[in-house]
Write a protein that binds this DNA or RNA. Structure first.
Length: 496
RNA sequence: GGCGCAAUCGAAUAGUGGUUAAUUCAGCUGGCUCUCAAUCAGCAAACGGGGGUUCAAUUCCCCCUUGCGCCA
């Protein structure tokens, strides 16, 4: 029973951040492992010494944790098949390489960059597929020695058998490649560093990975990896190549399509559950109409046969929709808790810990007005700024088109007078007061409401005016009406 | 250049050898309303092209096209 347990892995290169595509691959593997009660391994592929950094490892781990994708073996966790960093496994690759050399399944190649380029150029000219010319396949010991004394450092190449290489993709069925067209590719670079395809095979085999689920950009790498498995006499795992995620223009998802880093979404104020829910739908569907899924439901429903085969396009609008759905359904308490760091960041509050109960209550009231109007917390910071600023910033377009108009000063003055003496500050009495002012001036409600909204918030759009006033308080309402009146009069003076 | 993978409304996906080809996001119209959002009602919108197989193809097969990827 133990032997049948599914083992999958996510193996990122720590060369940047955890991007959306990587996160989706991680998610699918995680869901697959959790669904079948298998093991989810995290392995760091850090053999690109130039681009790999410790910081990038941490950023990726952080991203995984934020999304709630916990791993059973890997960095910080250990496990019986470690180490889980490729650079700590160099001796293992070396060991297998010596075996391949001894078995004459691989050979040293001393060709220089120039020699390879020349050969390649010739192949291009002859319209042939690009392939190593096997110049070093049968070097004698003397020739090898001569190259070494010249100071050449060899790379190790694998001999590719000239036969069909077939594998059964769990998603796509039988995929066939012609080994004849494959080059004797490099498995070990001259510095003793394994190439991607080589390290990945040894690691997957030694870590007893049963199912390799990865982006379909790896389909063409698979035959090479199978050749390595066979040369090493290792069991070939099952493969499932999932579709890639593209930008709106159907090119590879990149920064110009918007945020591609998962942590960027945290920063802008998305809920990890919403991001997970959305990316789960990129290339996968439950087979019916449901859209909103908890992680537990995703685990329950996830299966390979519901993964589509064609590339998916990332849509910010749809993500926004998912996120606002989550925000709408959150309790005010947890919403408040999540919002606090953003308020701090925007300097709307001093300190998250030392907030007075009254202030927390105030934040909750503001949140109630904004919940359902925002797609993320950055938008809250933007839309609700006037609740947290002493001097508000009146948008110039709103000022010109709504406030700086004939008759507005008189309206605001009348309203100010009425509100400043209002005894009872609740939605109902405020509405009554506003309507009374309107009817005494013989104008429609809207003619008083719109300028007042701009005077109080600096914006033309926002929550219902009366509830806004209740939260803002009588003092501030009156004060801002006064300030708006002054501002309009100043503008009139200047233009005259 | 060689090889591989893919192809349903603008996007994500359902679905089927015979259907009015469905749902969600986005878009548009209208209701509600002080604006926006939310919400409700409605509209518009797709089987890439060509050959087969078949009584019947969006669905199965082949070719083309397009997109994406791998190889340097």
């Amino acid at each position: 029973m133990e032997d049948n347990k599914i083992r999958v892995r996510f193996a990122p290169s720590p060369t940047g951040y955890l991007h959306i595509g990587g996160a989706r691959t991680a998610l699918f593997n995680w869901l697959y492992a959790r669904h079948y009660k298998g093991t989810f391994v995290l392995r760091i592929e850090d053999t690109d010494q130039v681009r790999s950094t410790e910081k990038a490892v941490n950023v990726i781990l952080e991203g995984m944790k934020w999304l709630g994708l916990d791993w059973d073996e890997g960095p910080g966790k250990g496990g019986e098949y470690g180490p889980y960093y490729q650079m700590k496994r160099l001796h293992i690759y070396q060991e297998y390489t010596e075996k391949l050399l001894k078995d004459e399944k691989a050979y040293c190649c001393y060709c220089t960059r120039e020699e390879l380029a020349n050969s390649r150029e010739k192949q291009v000219r002859e319209n042939k597929s690009l392939k190593y010319d096997k110049h070093c396949l049968n070097l004698s010991e003397e020739e090898k020695k001569r190259y070494e004394t010249e100071g050449r450092k060899p790379v190790i190449r694998l001999k590719i058998p000239a036969k069909k290489i077939v594998f059964n993709d769990l998603l796509r069925g039988e995929v066939t490649f012609d080994g004849e067209l494959l080059s004797d590719f490099v498995i070990m670079k001259s510095g003793g560093i394994p190439t991607y395809n080589y390290a990945v095979v040894i690691d997957d085999a030694l870590m007893k990975i049963t199912d390799v689920m990865r982006g379909d950009d790896h389909i063409s790498n698979t035959p090479k990896q199978i050749v390595i498995y066979e040369a090493l006499g290792l069991d070939v795992p099952k493969f499932a190549h999932i579709p890639m995620i593209m930008g709106q223009d159907h090119s590879r998802l990149s920064k110009r399509h918007g945020a591609t880093s998962v942590m960027e979404y945290k920063k802008v104020g998305y809920m990890p559950e919403a991001v997970v829910n959305y990316i789960a739908h990129l290339g996968w569907s439950p087979g019916d109409e449901r859209e909103i899924f908890t992680k537990e439901e995703l685990i329950k429903e996830f299966s390979l046969d519901k993964i589509s085969k064609h590339a998916a396009v990332f849509s910010m609008e749809k993500l926004n929709w998912f996120n606002s759905e989550y925000l709408k359904n959150m309790s005010i308490d947890s919403l408040t808790k999540t919002l606090l760091p953003f308020l701090k960041e925007a300097n709307y509050i001093e300190n998250e810990e030392s907030l007075s109960p009254a202030k927390i209550e105030y934040i909750k009231e503001v949140l109630k007005l904004m919940q359902g109007r925002i797609k993320n917390f950055s938008q809250f910071i933007d839309y609700a700024d006037y609740f947290f600023m002493d001097k508000i910033n009146i948008e110039s377009q709103a000022f010109d088109s709504v406030l700086n108009k004939e008759g507005v000063v008189g309206i605001l003055q009348a309203l100010k007078k009425k509100l400043s003496t209002l005894k009872c500050w609740n939605e109902e009495s405020i509405e009554n007061a506003v309507r009374e002012v309107a009817s005494s001036l013989q104008i429609k409600g809207g003619q008083i409401i719109h300028p007042t909204r701009v005077a109080l918030s600096g914006k033309k759009v926002g929550p219902g005016l009366f509830e806004l006033m209740v939260v803002l308080s009588q003092n501030k309402t009156v004060k801002r009406l006064k300030e708006a009146i002054e501002k309009i009069e100043d503008a009139k003076k200047i233009s005259n």
